[in-house]
């Protein structure tokens, strides 16, 4: 009995190894490399060049108030993974209600390409996962960004495994943003946790470039646990000269290492206990709203 179990386990392990990003990497050889860089040198160096294409990456908002930051970061990841190909952006109604709707002028300012996005507004997590599966199987898509509120019943280890498998087969990168929920076991290659962080103010005390504290909670192919402060930047105009219409200027979203804050500010992450109070209040607030 025990031997049989061990044999089955070995089989499973072998199978997982195959469906992981090793296979994806192999298949992606023709599609221009299995990794995409995030743009922030420190993060890229820690990841060994970047994140795997054709894999599932999970981005968690630390609190409900960090949803916008997490969504912004996830959309930058999807944009960079897509590399000019269309991005399918799936958002369920929970996220729409709590964090708002995607706003093209703002996305363009982040350096994303709103005109190359297919927006899908799913009723619930189950519909969102189905749409993600469908989109991940379509190799015309560059990346799929899926945003799910809370912990729907449909979101299980099996569901994430299915997504990861679809991603590895088609080479489409999947980025799953989750807000208002705690981590669950998942088949994601990496899991990031995102929290908004104070920016270095511009002139006249204006808010500067958006900064997020990015924690690599889980990484299948490397060490995890490190936290970086990254800026969400729009890369300088990249004109495609040589083309007939070389006037077209393209923008690119990327991450950058956030500059160290000036002395007056509370440095991260020592500011975290300080944060705790309003955050719990925020959590309670959502719960109350949901029941009310």
């Amino acid at each position: 009995m025990r031997e049989e179990l061990a044999k089955l386990k070995a089989q499973l392990a072998a199978h997982e190894g195959l469906t992981g990003h090793e296979l994806a990497g192999e298949e992606l050889g023709a599609r221009g490399g299995g990794l995409f860089s995030l743009g922030a040198k420190s993060v890229d160096a820690a990841l060994g060049g970047g994140l795997a294409r054709g894999a599932l990456h999970e981005v968690l908002a630390e609190t409900v108030l960090d949803t916008a930051s997490a969504s912004g970061l996830a959309s930058v990841l999807a944009h960079r993974a897509a590399n000019g190909r269309p991005v399918v952006w799936i958002r369920d109604d929970g996220v729409c209600r709590e964090a708002g709707m995607p706003y093209a002028p703002g996305l363009a300012e982040m350096g994303l390409d709103p005109d190359n996005m297919l927006l899908v507004f799913a009723r619930n997590g189950l519909d969102a996962l189905r749409a993600a599966n469908e989109s991940a199987a379509c190799d015309a898509v560059g990346a799929v960004l899926i945003e799910i509120w809370g912990a729907p019943k449909a979101l299980t280890l099996t569901a994430t495994r299915r997504l990861a498998l679809a991603a590895s087969l088609s080479g489409v990168t999947l980025v799953m943003m989750r807000a208002g929920a705690s981590p669950i076991p998942s088949a994601a290659t990496t899991r990031w946790s995102v929290r908004a962080a104070p920016s270095s103010p511009a002139m006249a005390n204006a808010p500067g470039l958006p900064v997020c504290a990015l924690t690599l909670q889980r990484h299948r192919a490397g060490p995890a646990g490190h936290t970086w402060n990254v800026e969400l930047r729009r890369e300088n105009a990249r004109s495609n000269a040589g083309d007939s219409d070389d006037e077209i200027i393209r923008y690119d979203a990327c991450l950058g290492d956030a500059p160290a804050l000036s002395g007056g500010m509370v440095p991260l992450p020592s500011g975290r206990p300080h944060d705790a109070e309003p955050e719990t209040a925020g959590g309670a607030g959502t719960a109350a709203r949901r029941t009310g």
Binding site: A68, G100, P102, Y103, G106, L107, E109, M110, S199
Partner: peptide, 8 residues
């Protein structure tokens, strides 16, 4: 920094 929100 961006002048417009990404979520509305």
């Amino acid at each position: 920094p961006p002048l417009r929100p990404s979520q509305i």
